Simulated assay, not measured.
Amino acid sequence: MFNIRVLILLLVLLLGILFVYLHHEWRPTSFIPQTNTHRDRLSAEVTVNQIFHLVAPDHLKYKQPSIVHGRTDVVTLAPWLAPVIWEGTFNPVLLDSIYQSKNITVAATVFAVGKYIRFLKKFLETAERFFFVGFRVNIYVFTDRPKEVPRVQMSAGRKVVVHSVPSSDRWQEISARRMELIQNLIEEVQNSTDYIFCLDVDSEFHGRWGSESLGGLVAVIHPGYYRDDRGRFPYERRPASRAYVADGEGDFYYCGGAFGGLLQEVHLLAKTCHLNFKADAEEGIEAAWQEESHLNRYMWINKPSKILSPEYLWQDFKPRNPEIHIIRFSGVVKNYADIRPNV
Protein backbone atom coordinates (compact mmCIF):
# COMPACT_ATOMS: atom_id res chain seq x y z
CA MET A 1 0.00 0.00 0.00
CA PHE A 2 2.82 2.35 0.94
CA ASN A 3 4.61 1.77 -2.36
CA ILE A 4 1.44 2.41 -4.33
CA ARG A 5 0.88 5.72 -2.53
CA VAL A 6 4.46 6.80 -3.20
CA LEU A 7 4.14 5.93 -6.86
CA ILE A 8 0.90 7.92 -7.13
CA LEU A 9 2.50 10.96 -5.44
CA LEU A 10 5.54 10.74 -7.70
CA LEU A 11 3.30 10.48 -10.76
CA VAL A 12 1.29 13.56 -9.69
CA LEU A 13 4.52 15.47 -9.05
CA LEU A 14 5.92 14.56 -12.47
CA LEU A 15 2.69 15.57 -14.19
CA GLY A 16 2.78 18.90 -12.35
CA ILE A 17 6.37 19.59 -13.43
CA LEU A 18 5.49 18.66 -17.02
CA PHE A 19 2.48 21.02 -17.01
CA VAL A 20 4.55 23.94 -15.69
CA TYR A 21 7.27 23.29 -18.27
CA LEU A 22 4.89 23.11 -21.21
CA HIS A 23 2.91 26.14 -20.02
CA HIS A 24 6.12 28.17 -19.77
CA GLU A 25 7.43 27.02 -23.14
CA TRP A 26 4.27 27.68 -25.17
CA ARG A 27 2.85 30.79 -23.52
CA PRO A 28 3.16 33.79 -25.90
CA THR A 29 4.94 36.82 -24.48
CA SER A 30 2.50 39.72 -24.18
CA PHE A 31 1.50 40.95 -27.65
CA ILE A 32 4.83 40.07 -29.28
CA PRO A 33 4.49 37.70 -32.27
CA GLN A 34 6.57 34.54 -32.34
CA THR A 35 9.76 35.27 -34.28
CA ASN A 36 12.78 33.32 -35.42
CA THR A 37 15.64 35.42 -34.09
CA HIS A 38 16.55 37.49 -31.07
CA ARG A 39 16.82 40.52 -33.34
CA ASP A 40 13.30 39.96 -34.70
CA ARG A 41 11.94 39.66 -31.16
CA LEU A 42 13.59 42.94 -30.16
CA SER A 43 12.11 44.58 -33.26
CA ALA A 44 8.67 43.28 -32.32
CA GLU A 45 9.09 44.64 -28.79
CA VAL A 46 9.95 48.06 -30.20
CA THR A 47 6.82 47.95 -32.37
CA VAL A 48 4.61 47.07 -29.43
CA ASN A 49 6.22 49.86 -27.43
CA GLN A 50 5.48 52.37 -30.18
CA ILE A 51 1.80 51.46 -30.24
CA PHE A 52 0.88 50.86 -26.63
CA HIS A 53 3.44 52.51 -24.37
CA LEU A 54 2.69 56.23 -24.41
CA VAL A 55 4.96 58.32 -22.17
CA ALA A 56 4.33 62.04 -21.71
CA PRO A 57 7.11 64.39 -20.56
CA ASP A 58 7.14 65.10 -16.84
CA HIS A 59 5.35 68.32 -15.82
CA LEU A 60 3.84 68.92 -19.27
CA LYS A 61 1.00 71.45 -18.91
CA TYR A 62 -2.20 71.00 -20.90
CA LYS A 63 -5.93 71.45 -20.49
CA GLN A 64 -7.64 68.93 -18.23
CA PRO A 65 -9.48 66.29 -20.32
CA SER A 66 -13.16 65.58 -19.73
CA ILE A 67 -15.25 62.45 -20.21
CA VAL A 68 -18.59 64.30 -20.04
CA HIS A 69 -17.92 67.22 -22.41
CA GLY A 70 -16.78 66.97 -26.03
CA ARG A 71 -18.01 66.44 -29.59
CA THR A 72 -21.65 65.33 -29.60
CA ASP A 73 -22.42 66.04 -33.26
CA VAL A 74 -20.34 63.16 -34.63
CA VAL A 75 -19.47 59.56 -33.78
CA THR A 76 -15.97 59.29 -32.29
CA LEU A 77 -15.78 55.51 -31.79
CA ALA A 78 -16.40 52.70 -34.27
CA PRO A 79 -18.37 49.60 -33.17
CA TRP A 80 -15.07 47.67 -32.81
CA LEU A 81 -13.79 50.49 -30.54
CA ALA A 82 -11.44 52.14 -33.03
CA PRO A 83 -11.28 55.92 -32.44
CA VAL A 84 -12.62 58.22 -35.17
CA ILE A 85 -10.48 61.35 -35.24
CA TRP A 86 -12.20 64.74 -35.54
CA GLU A 87 -11.12 68.26 -34.63
CA GLY A 88 -11.73 68.70 -30.92
CA THR A 89 -11.19 65.04 -29.99
CA PHE A 90 -7.43 65.19 -29.29
CA ASN A 91 -4.76 67.41 -27.75
CA PRO A 92 -2.03 68.07 -30.37
CA VAL A 93 0.52 69.36 -27.86
CA LEU A 94 0.19 66.25 -25.70
CA LEU A 95 0.30 63.83 -28.63
CA ASP A 96 3.31 65.48 -30.26
CA SER A 97 5.22 65.44 -26.98
CA ILE A 98 4.55 61.70 -26.64
CA TYR A 99 5.51 60.69 -30.17
CA GLN A 100 8.46 63.03 -30.67
CA SER A 101 10.21 61.31 -27.78
CA LYS A 102 9.96 58.03 -29.71
CA ASN A 103 12.15 59.42 -32.55
CA ILE A 104 9.87 57.95 -35.19
CA THR A 105 10.26 58.37 -38.94
CA VAL A 106 7.16 58.81 -41.09
CA ALA A 107 7.09 58.06 -44.82
CA ALA A 108 4.58 59.31 -47.35
CA THR A 109 4.09 57.99 -50.87
CA VAL A 110 2.70 60.05 -53.72
CA PHE A 111 2.27 59.15 -57.40
CA ALA A 112 2.86 61.92 -59.93
CA VAL A 113 2.54 60.06 -63.23
CA GLY A 114 1.86 61.78 -66.54
CA LYS A 115 0.14 65.14 -66.27
CA TYR A 116 -0.42 64.62 -62.54
CA ILE A 117 3.10 66.02 -62.12
CA ARG A 118 1.49 69.47 -62.20
CA PHE A 119 0.03 68.92 -58.72
CA LEU A 120 3.28 67.88 -57.08
CA LYS A 121 4.70 71.30 -56.22
CA LYS A 122 1.67 72.38 -54.19
CA PHE A 123 1.47 68.98 -52.54
CA LEU A 124 5.10 69.19 -51.37
CA GLU A 125 4.90 72.82 -50.32
CA THR A 126 1.78 72.30 -48.24
CA ALA A 127 3.09 69.04 -46.79
CA GLU A 128 6.10 70.95 -45.54
CA ARG A 129 3.76 73.36 -43.74
CA PHE A 130 1.25 70.90 -42.27
CA PHE A 131 2.25 67.20 -42.52
CA PHE A 132 3.94 65.89 -39.37
CA VAL A 133 5.71 69.15 -38.66
CA GLY A 134 8.58 68.60 -36.23
CA PHE A 135 9.02 64.92 -37.17
CA ARG A 136 11.40 63.10 -39.49
CA VAL A 137 9.55 62.70 -42.78
CA ASN A 138 10.55 61.10 -46.08
CA ILE A 139 8.26 61.74 -49.04
CA TYR A 140 8.64 59.16 -51.82
CA VAL A 141 7.57 60.48 -55.22
CA PHE A 142 6.80 57.91 -57.92
CA THR A 143 6.88 59.52 -61.34
CA ASP A 144 7.60 58.92 -65.01
CA ARG A 145 8.92 62.49 -65.26
CA PRO A 146 11.74 62.67 -62.70
CA LYS A 147 13.33 65.70 -64.37
CA GLU A 148 10.14 67.69 -63.77
CA VAL A 149 10.02 67.08 -60.02
CA PRO A 150 10.04 70.58 -58.47
CA ARG A 151 12.63 71.59 -55.92
CA VAL A 152 10.97 72.44 -52.64
CA GLN A 153 12.97 73.58 -49.62
CA MET A 154 12.56 71.02 -46.85
CA SER A 155 13.26 71.43 -43.15
CA ALA A 156 16.00 69.50 -41.37
CA GLY A 157 15.12 65.80 -41.09
CA ARG A 158 12.72 65.94 -44.02
CA LYS A 159 13.47 64.97 -47.62
CA VAL A 160 11.97 64.05 -50.98
CA VAL A 161 13.07 60.81 -52.64
CA VAL A 162 12.23 60.27 -56.33
CA HIS A 163 11.48 56.82 -57.79
CA SER A 164 11.12 56.48 -61.55
CA VAL A 165 8.20 54.41 -62.84
CA PRO A 166 6.93 53.75 -66.37
CA SER A 167 4.03 55.73 -67.77
CA SER A 168 0.77 54.14 -68.91
CA ASP A 169 -1.96 54.72 -71.48
CA ARG A 170 -4.67 53.86 -68.91
CA TRP A 171 -5.09 55.71 -65.62
CA GLN A 172 -6.65 52.54 -64.21
CA GLU A 173 -3.32 50.72 -64.65
CA ILE A 174 -1.48 53.54 -62.87
CA SER A 175 -3.96 53.25 -60.03
CA ALA A 176 -3.72 49.48 -59.87
CA ARG A 177 0.08 49.45 -59.84
CA ARG A 178 0.27 51.55 -56.70
CA MET A 179 -0.20 48.69 -54.25
CA GLU A 180 2.67 46.67 -55.69
CA LEU A 181 5.00 49.68 -55.62
CA ILE A 182 4.01 50.53 -52.05
CA GLN A 183 4.67 46.92 -51.02
CA ASN A 184 8.13 47.01 -52.62
CA LEU A 185 8.97 50.38 -51.04
CA ILE A 186 8.08 49.16 -47.55
CA GLU A 187 10.42 46.20 -48.00
CA GLU A 188 13.20 48.67 -48.91
CA VAL A 189 12.72 51.08 -45.99
CA GLN A 190 11.58 48.70 -43.25
CA ASN A 191 14.74 49.22 -41.17
CA SER A 192 14.61 53.01 -41.24
CA THR A 193 10.89 53.89 -41.13
CA ASP A 194 8.10 53.36 -38.60
CA TYR A 195 4.88 54.61 -40.21
CA ILE A 196 3.75 55.22 -43.77
CA PHE A 197 0.88 57.15 -45.35
CA CYS A 198 -0.16 56.74 -48.98
CA LEU A 199 -1.62 59.95 -50.36
CA ASP A 200 -3.03 61.35 -53.61
CA VAL A 201 -0.87 63.95 -55.34
CA ASP A 202 -3.84 65.97 -56.67
CA SER A 203 -4.55 67.19 -53.14
CA GLU A 204 -3.22 69.91 -50.86
CA PHE A 205 -2.81 70.29 -47.11
CA HIS A 206 -4.75 73.10 -45.44
CA GLY A 207 -4.34 72.19 -41.78
CA ARG A 208 -2.46 70.02 -39.34
CA TRP A 209 -2.03 66.32 -40.14
CA GLY A 210 0.12 64.91 -37.37
CA SER A 211 0.66 62.39 -34.60
CA GLU A 212 -3.08 62.06 -33.91
CA SER A 213 -3.25 60.00 -37.12
CA LEU A 214 -0.74 57.36 -36.01
CA GLY A 215 -2.03 53.84 -35.53
CA GLY A 216 -1.70 50.23 -36.60
CA LEU A 217 -3.93 50.28 -39.70
CA VAL A 218 -5.33 53.74 -40.46
CA ALA A 219 -8.26 54.42 -42.79
CA VAL A 220 -9.81 57.69 -43.96
CA ILE A 221 -13.57 58.07 -44.38
CA HIS A 222 -14.48 59.09 -47.94
CA PRO A 223 -16.03 62.59 -47.97
CA GLY A 224 -18.49 61.69 -50.70
CA TYR A 225 -20.31 58.92 -48.84
CA TYR A 226 -19.93 59.41 -45.09
CA ARG A 227 -23.55 60.50 -44.64
CA ASP A 228 -24.98 57.76 -46.89
CA ASP A 229 -26.49 54.37 -46.20
CA ARG A 230 -24.01 51.64 -47.08
CA GLY A 231 -26.32 50.44 -49.83
CA ARG A 232 -25.14 53.48 -51.80
CA PHE A 233 -21.43 52.84 -51.29
CA PRO A 234 -19.64 52.10 -54.60
CA TYR A 235 -18.26 48.75 -53.44
CA GLU A 236 -17.42 46.07 -55.96
CA ARG A 237 -20.71 44.14 -56.13
CA ARG A 238 -19.76 41.26 -58.44
CA PRO A 239 -19.18 38.04 -56.45
CA ALA A 240 -16.59 36.90 -58.99
CA SER A 241 -14.20 39.66 -57.89
CA ARG A 242 -11.95 39.31 -54.87
CA ALA A 243 -12.93 42.88 -53.97
CA TYR A 244 -16.57 41.79 -53.56
CA VAL A 245 -18.62 43.25 -50.71
CA ALA A 246 -22.17 41.90 -50.56
CA ASP A 247 -25.32 43.95 -50.05
CA GLY A 248 -25.87 44.60 -46.37
CA GLU A 249 -22.14 44.35 -45.61
CA GLY A 250 -19.47 46.97 -45.06
CA ASP A 251 -18.85 49.54 -42.33
CA PHE A 252 -17.79 52.77 -44.00
CA TYR A 253 -16.52 53.67 -47.46
CA TYR A 254 -12.81 54.42 -47.19
CA CYS A 255 -10.62 56.56 -49.45
CA GLY A 256 -8.06 54.98 -51.72
CA GLY A 257 -6.37 58.39 -51.81
CA ALA A 258 -5.33 58.39 -48.15
CA PHE A 259 -4.51 55.47 -45.88
CA GLY A 260 -1.58 54.33 -43.78
CA GLY A 261 -0.30 53.05 -40.45
CA LEU A 262 2.57 50.94 -39.19
CA LEU A 263 4.82 49.60 -41.93
CA GLN A 264 3.98 45.93 -41.32
CA GLU A 265 0.23 46.63 -41.37
CA VAL A 266 0.34 48.62 -44.60
CA HIS A 267 2.67 46.05 -46.15
CA LEU A 268 0.12 43.30 -45.51
CA LEU A 269 -2.69 45.45 -46.91
CA ALA A 270 -0.70 46.38 -50.05
CA LYS A 271 0.47 42.81 -50.65
CA THR A 272 -3.03 41.37 -50.24
CA CYS A 273 -4.66 43.99 -52.47
CA HIS A 274 -1.96 43.56 -55.12
CA LEU A 275 -2.31 39.76 -55.19
CA ASN A 276 -6.10 39.96 -55.29
CA PHE A 277 -6.02 42.54 -58.09
CA LYS A 278 -3.60 40.37 -60.05
CA ALA A 279 -5.73 37.26 -59.55
CA ASP A 280 -8.81 39.16 -60.71
CA ALA A 281 -6.97 40.42 -63.79
CA GLU A 282 -5.98 36.86 -64.73
CA GLU A 283 -9.70 36.07 -64.82
CA GLY A 284 -10.55 39.17 -66.86
CA ILE A 285 -12.00 41.14 -63.91
CA GLU A 286 -11.20 44.72 -62.94
CA ALA A 287 -12.84 45.96 -59.74
CA ALA A 288 -15.11 48.98 -60.01
CA TRP A 289 -12.61 51.40 -58.41
CA GLN A 290 -9.38 49.41 -58.83
CA GLU A 291 -7.22 49.48 -55.69
CA GLU A 292 -9.82 51.46 -53.73
CA SER A 293 -12.29 48.59 -54.16
CA HIS A 294 -9.73 46.07 -52.96
CA LEU A 295 -8.77 48.33 -50.05
CA ASN A 296 -12.40 48.55 -48.94
CA ARG A 297 -12.79 44.79 -49.12
CA TYR A 298 -9.60 44.34 -47.08
CA MET A 299 -10.70 46.81 -44.40
CA TRP A 300 -14.15 45.26 -44.16
CA ILE A 301 -12.46 42.07 -42.92
CA ASN A 302 -9.32 43.57 -41.35
CA LYS A 303 -10.74 46.42 -39.29
CA PRO A 304 -8.65 49.59 -39.10
CA SER A 305 -7.40 50.40 -35.62
CA LYS A 306 -7.83 54.13 -36.19
CA ILE A 307 -10.22 55.97 -38.51
CA LEU A 308 -9.65 59.52 -39.73
CA SER A 309 -12.70 61.67 -40.38
CA PRO A 310 -13.36 63.32 -43.77
CA GLU A 311 -11.30 66.29 -42.51
CA TYR A 312 -8.31 64.22 -43.69
CA LEU A 313 -9.41 64.06 -47.33
CA TRP A 314 -12.09 66.52 -48.29
CA GLN A 315 -12.94 67.66 -51.84
CA ASP A 316 -12.48 71.28 -52.85
CA PHE A 317 -15.66 71.34 -54.91
CA LYS A 318 -17.80 70.36 -51.90
CA PRO A 319 -19.23 72.95 -49.50
CA ARG A 320 -18.10 72.35 -45.94
CA ASN A 321 -20.71 70.57 -43.84
CA PRO A 322 -21.34 71.81 -40.26
CA GLU A 323 -19.50 68.88 -38.64
CA ILE A 324 -16.34 69.64 -40.63
CA HIS A 325 -14.65 72.17 -38.34
CA ILE A 326 -11.38 72.10 -40.28
CA ILE A 327 -10.19 70.82 -43.65
CA ARG A 328 -6.77 69.27 -43.27
CA PHE A 329 -6.22 67.71 -46.70
CA SER A 330 -8.38 68.12 -49.78
CA GLY A 331 -8.54 67.08 -53.41
CA VAL A 332 -8.23 70.02 -55.79
CA VAL A 333 -10.74 70.83 -58.52
CA LYS A 334 -9.52 69.44 -61.84
CA ASN A 335 -10.55 68.47 -65.35
CA TYR A 336 -10.09 64.70 -65.61
CA ALA A 337 -10.37 64.81 -69.39
CA ASP A 338 -7.26 66.98 -69.43
CA ILE A 339 -5.03 65.06 -67.02
CA ARG A 340 -5.96 61.40 -67.49
CA PRO A 341 -4.64 59.47 -70.50
CA ASN A 342 -8.07 57.87 -70.95
CA VAL A 343 -11.43 58.80 -69.44
Rank of each mutant, 00 (worst) to 15 (best):
V48C: 12
N49V: 11
N49Y: 12
Q50S: 12
Q50L: 15
L54D: 08
P57K: 03
P57L: 00
H59A: 14
H59G: 12
L60S: 06
K61A: 14
Y62S: 12
Y62I: 06
K63E: 15
Q64K: 15
S66K: 01
I67Y: 14
I67E: 15
V68Q: 13
V68D: 13
V68W: 13
V68A: 11
H69P: 09
R71E: 03
R71S: 04
T72L: 10
V74G: 05
V75G: 11
T76K: 04
L77T: 10
L77H: 06
L77D: 09
L77G: 05
A78E: 06
P79M: 04
P79A: 05
P79D: 03
P79N: 02
W80K: 06
W80P: 06
W80E: 08
L81D: 15
L81W: 10
P83Q: 04
P83D: 02
P83E: 04
V84Q: 07
V84W: 05
I85H: 01
I85P: 11
W86T: 08
W86Y: 13
E87K: 14
E87V: 07
E87R: 14
G88K: 08
T89V: 10
F90V: 09
F90L: 09
P92Q: 04
V93L: 11
V93G: 07
V93N: 07
V93R: 10
V93E: 11
L94V: 13
L94S: 05
L95V: 10
D96H: 01
S97K: 05
I98E: 01
Y99L: 09
Q100S: 14
S101D: 14
K102T: 11
K102M: 14
K102G: 09
N103S: 14
N103P: 08
I104H: 03
T105D: 08
T105F: 08
T105H: 13
T105G: 08
T105S: 10
V106Y: 02
A108T: 04
A108K: 01
T109M: 08
T109S: 08
V110F: 02
V110E: 00
F111G: 02
F111V: 02
A112R: 01
G114A: 05
K115I: 04
K115S: 07
K115F: 03
Y116E: 04
Y116F: 12
R118T: 13
F119S: 06
F119N: 07
F119L: 05
L120Q: 03
K121D: 13
K121R: 15
K121H: 13
K122C: 15
K122V: 13
K122Q: 15
K122M: 15
T126C: 09
A127Q: 02
A127F: 03
R129C: 11
R129N: 13
F130Y: 15
F130G: 11
F131C: 08
F132E: 02
G134D: 06
F135D: 06
F135L: 07
R136S: 15
V137A: 00
V137I: 08
V137F: 02
N138F: 11
I139A: 01
Y140D: 00
V141Y: 00
T143C: 00
D144Q: 00
R145T: 14
P146Y: 10
E148S: 14
E148M: 11
P150H: 02
